[in-house]
Amino acid sequence: MIKHHPTSNVLSGFVAGDLPASVAIIVASHVELCRECANHVQQLTEQAAMQAFDMTADDDWLNDQVQLGDTSPQHINDIDHDGIDSNDMELACDSRAMIDAITASPAQVKSAVAQTVTEIEVAGQRISLPRAMKSIGLREWQGLGKLSRARLALDDDELRASLLHIDKGGSVPCHTHKGFEITLLLQGSFDDEMGHYTAGDFIWLDGDHTHQPITQEGCVCLTVSSDAIHFTQGMSQLLNPIGRFIY
């Protein structure tokens, strides 16, 4: 049972295409696992589509764009019902040329074979990766004690996306985040001070949170973080250089 979800704001940004690629990928990966959020995204997409293609909202936007032709609402009615006037002739010619060019291209060939699910093997278990990751490569796994990590081969400014595996009984020392860290639990479970997390849970933490995830059964997560994590307690502070490793 998934208990932790992206906020409505995050889902709206996702639908609008406004999130950075790695954040969009981790949100999409959650949505793929979560029917509730999938329904929400569907609704938000319908709304965004209505807004983008809304007939009633045309007026203000069009008036800003003089090159698009004369744009008073009355005038649009004229175009709709009486054909194209001279102002729009040029645009119409461009459109005609574009339509001709596009319709000269063939339909995409329907692939007869079903999309193969991308799987990886971690610690002897097969894990199917989110669809959103299917054309993104994984860099080599690097291990450190019970932690191992493989970066996604994704260029996204200062954001890093990784698969993180914590082996049975492993933990990440108590740490905070300078920036933000998003974790999507793909398999297994873990606990921290704030709760128990199971597959599908989407956890967004920022610098205000300190936590120490521990896993009994082991887990595999997709993570996106904006900055190195920072260890906060006793001896583990000696580990701060490895904060860069996990990030």
Partner: peptide, 20 residues
């Protein structure tokens, strides 16, 4: 033009698909 066959009228409005 090339991917219209991926649209399914039973699963949503045409506007939603084109928006996507």
């Amino acid at each position: 033009w090339r991917k219209a066959h991926l649209y399914n009228v039973d699963k949503g409005a045409a506007t939603t698909w084109v928006y996507t």
